[in-house]
Design a protein around this nucleic acid. Structure first.
Lengths: 339, 339
DNA sequence: TTGAAAGCGCTAACAA
DNA sequence: TTGTTAGCGCTTTCAA
């Protein structure tokens, strides 16, 4: 299994120069005579030399690798998250950025406190230059742990204490405003919303933004039913809304799964969508497309956000950025058939 | 950014022993007196010592990291693949296995020949101990390239030359047989199938297996229309089948997307599913659940297969397995509403 | 059972 | 512009 190949030494000998010179041309350092460069390059070609990453890392203290950490809770947490297309979009954005910067992501799952300790431990060994964290937990201790271990970190979504660590986030309130204005514009008179647990900052922003937008249009009373991000909870919330406010003709759900649940319930009740009740979701997840009818939804530019996350981290690693920064992204409305 | 922590040397000095001794207790090597072990452990605790990965790798020639490579073709290839829940299931299975063996996956995308060269180059630097390859391309040159570079490899799905490289695969023909028997059992008399490009081994196996199962039940004539794995191609194939064989009452599609397309077309034609025409898909992808009606489909145990892939690779890396091996998995039928 | 010492392959002062 | 040299932090013979 020993894949030991030629070393700098071998190349140097063959080219009749010193190791340092070979190292210089390998790393593109100037101050090497063109003819010697050519000589060395030729020797590299001949020997099939590849620099050894471990040896290089040992001296540079850099790995050109960053950790992509999915942090949350629960045994089956990992499989659930990975099955979600959202995860794939994050990966896609991260890989897209890193690849063009000669860096690579290593995937870490931290589904328990013990696992989080292990992750910090692992990174403390200098295995990666920094960490990208996607928390699925409300109050995730991991970012602080990493920061304490002096590991550069960037988060997806705003943390509890926004100024302590770099992150990217969506302008959730503005996204909700788009939904409100769309419902208003298509003539809805009795607009309600299915919210999500208010302990989650994003859920809070979506509700607040939605209410604010309607309020500024003169609509003060907005029926609210709270769900838990699942299809079933969406259906239940819709049932509650319809029972208390039979005249509802427009609904905004804080995510697509709940919107789908709402649609299912509405159709069972013989309501036509969007004719009788218009429905707007949030996320532009895959269910938005497969839902009957396809959902009008607020789109989150996940890939772009993930790429920005990688860029921020890269800047922290290089040292070109020292203070925590936050980058906010605009949401867009994807109009389909449900509203 | 220099995160230089305490070294073996520091611990050794503090414990009043040699570096070698500290190394021994860190690595759990026997032949260290219990009291000295205690002494060293204490010193490690006090200093907060963490072994440096690069230094260790430099001498052991091991990184405890494996590459997870998605190989295919096309610019947007990466984002498409990552958006597919299938990818998430692979990741989940791989991570599940590696984690418990103190290894980690680094994610690589090889969407072009140039990218594949880079991947081989990268791995030649000893950055990972081996590679897990998921090819989305029919004749992928990557496995051979890696093998030539003496990098241990395991593939998802059977390669062109099955005996040259380790891989895991599904018993596609058996899966198709399950579908055939299910349609037969529910009383279908006129059974057709929507196949996929026969250049793909899996597609060939599914068609062959389906035909063989029907043949052994006395059904020799099976109408076939070929699609390209997409929803639209499935609808088109269904249209073709229905036009030439209006009495079709059972259809097996080589993947769920095409099955979904078939369902859409059938419903547009006023056919009831499964009453008029029963439909069976393949993959148990997310569309199987969101499809109207939910699809009865042949399930591939992707996570298990991915975990087995990681296990095989791990064995190759350790050297406990030297010859290429192949592991075949049984498919299961997930019965929902469409058949 | 423990320690001394020789590298692993590379980068980066520093000299020449 | 090039070479010499001293490590980076660790494992692993080999002796004691």
């Amino acid at each position: 299994m020993s894949r030991r190949g030629p070393t700098l030494e071998d190349v140097a000998r063959r080219a009749g120069v010193s190791r340092a010179t070979v190292s210089r041309v390998v790393n593109g350092v100037r101050n090497v005579a063109p003819d010697i460069q050519e000589l060395v390059r030729h020797a590299i070609e001949q020997t099939g030399y590849r620099p050894n990453r471990a040896a290089r890392s040992l001296v540079t203290q850099r790995t050109e690798t960053v950790a992509l950490i999915i942090s949350g809770a629960g045994d089956t947490f990992g499989s659930r998250v990975f099955a979600d297309p959202f995860f794939g979009r994050v990966v896609s954005g991260v890989v897209g950025y890193l690849r063009s910067h000669a860096m690579h992501p290593v995937l870490l799952v931290a589904e328990s406190d013990a696992a989080r300790e292990q992750v910090v431990d692992y990174l403390s060994q200098g295995t990666a230059d920094g960490a990208l964290v996607v928390s699925v937990q409300v109050a995730d201790p991991l970012p602080a742990m990493l920061t304490a271990a002096r590991i550069p970190v960037v988060l997806f979504a705003r943390p509890e204490h926004p100024h302590t660590v770099s992150h990217v986030d969506l302008a959730h309130a503005e996204g909700a405003r788009l939904a409100a204005e769309h419902l208003l514009a298509r003539g809805c008179r009795r607009i309600a919303t299915i919210s999500a647990p208010q302990s989650i900052p994003a859920a809070r922003d979506r509700l607040d933004g939605f209410r604010a937008a309607l309020a500024s249009a003169g609509v003060a009373d907005v029926p609210v039913a709270e769900g838990t991000f699942t299809v079933d909870s969406g259906a239940a919330a819709m049932a509650e809304l319809l029972r208390d406010h039979p005249d509802v003709d427009g609904v905004f759900a804080a995510n697509d799964l709940m919107a789908q649940g709402a649609c299912q319930f509405l159709r069972e009740q013989g309501k036509r969508i969007p004719k009788d009740v218009a429905v707007v979701g949030f996320d532009d997840s895959s269910v938005a497309v497969t839902c009957r009818p396809p959902l009008t939804t607020v789109r989150q530019p996940v890939e772009k956000m993930a790429a920005a996350m990688a860029r921020l981290l890269s800047e922290h690693i290089q040292g070109t950025r020292t203070r925590p920064a936050s980058v906010l992204f605009d949401a867009e409305l994807d109009v389909r058939e449900s509203a």
